[in-house]
């Protein structure tokens, strides 16, 4: 399999007066999994559609392996749209075979891989059923198989975990992880932030068509303003005033919560605290992805 990174380079898209994407950029390297988070209407789906070539961007470029994506590369992308994206009245196996063929496999080949994926996802007995006869969770598995049937070089999934039961979430996670480990760049969007935190190598947070934060989960958690909790019972209420880059968020029962910006020096804060007497606690609160998301994405206008 050719290994290449998927690069989305400053793409913009407007619908009339509405700016859907404003110089959105992201890169997913081979063997990397990127979680794409942001509230509804932030531009995740639009970004994915443009990456797939389903939509055209007004400006910017999508590249794979350093070359603009053309039709050949496009047919090597595996895609899973939000909600369903299959014919309800078509039989499961026929459906997967058809999609495999559309992606350039021969009929026999498409049939073989479709069968093997159904086997692997535990749907082998349902292969001649109409899709609509399957439970929603099973339909979602078929959808995953549809994204994988042609052995994609890039995997793009829009909300793959929504509506799945814990067993299916586990199965989906495993399959994505394995695909990723084979050197395929994987991007998926999700509102389940714990899952993203657990599963992804990197996270991109989108707001109003822009990437507002992008990095490993570690980087994101250590970046930006950090909160410090200091327990110095003998400190006067104004002990932290005047320290550079420090603001008091909350004071209660001798505990002070401080917010430090990039100019602040936490060692100076510690010394200031010690100069007031004993310090029982001095801790840095690392935000969870949920906190980060909340901080970054505030007052998002509804779609």
């Amino acid at each position: 399999m050719p290994e290449g990174a998927l690069e989305i380079d400053r793409i913009s898209k407007r619908y009339g007066d509405v700016v859907a994407l404003d110089e959105m950029s992201l890169t997913v390297r081979p063997g990397e999994m990127l979680g794409f988070v942001g509230s509804n209407g932030a531009g995740k789906t639009t970004t994915m559609r443009i990456a797939l070539g389903v939509l055209a961007a007004d400006s910017g470029e999508v590249r794979y392996n350093d070359a603009p994506i053309d039709r050949t590369v496009r047919s090597r992308i595996g895609y899973m749209p939000e909600e369903r994206g299959l014919y309800p009245k078509m039989r499961v196996l026929d459906q997967l075979q058809y999609l495999g063929e559309l992606h350039g496999l021969s009929r026999a080949e498409a049939g073989r891989t479709a069968e093997s994926w159904l086997e692997r996802l535990g749907l082998a007995e349902r292969r001649n059923d109409q899709l609509q006869k399957l439970s929603l969770g099973n339909q979602q598995r078929v959808q995953l198989a549809a994204a994988l049937v042609h052995d994609p070089a890039v995997l793009i999934l829009d909300e793959p975990f929504s509506g799945l039961d814990p067993v299916a979430v586990e199965l989906m996670s495993t399959v994505l992880r394995q695909t990723c480990e084979r050197g395929v760049p994987v991007v998926f969007s999700s509102h389940q932030l714990e899952l993203v935190q657990k599963l992804c190598d990197r996270v991109g947070i989108v707001q109003r068509g822009r990437m507002v934060a992008d990095g490993t989960v570690e980087q994101l958690r250590s970046s930006g303003p950090a909160d410090l909790t200091v327990h110095a019972p003998q400190a006067p209420p104004d002990w932290a005033d005047g320290l550079r880059g420090v603001s008091v968020v909350d004071t209660s029962g001798g505990r002070t919560t401080l917010r430090l910006d990039e100019t602040a020096d936490d060692q100076a804060v510690l010394q200031a605290a010690l100069s007031t007497g004993p310090v029982h606690e001095f801790s840095r609160n690392r935000p969870s992805l949920t906190d980060l998301f909340r901080n970054v994405v505030t007052e998002e206008p509804a779609e």
Partner: peptide
Amino acid sequence: NRVVEMLLAT
């Protein structure tokens, strides 16, 4: 059914 998204990707 959004099948069209799947199809137009290829």
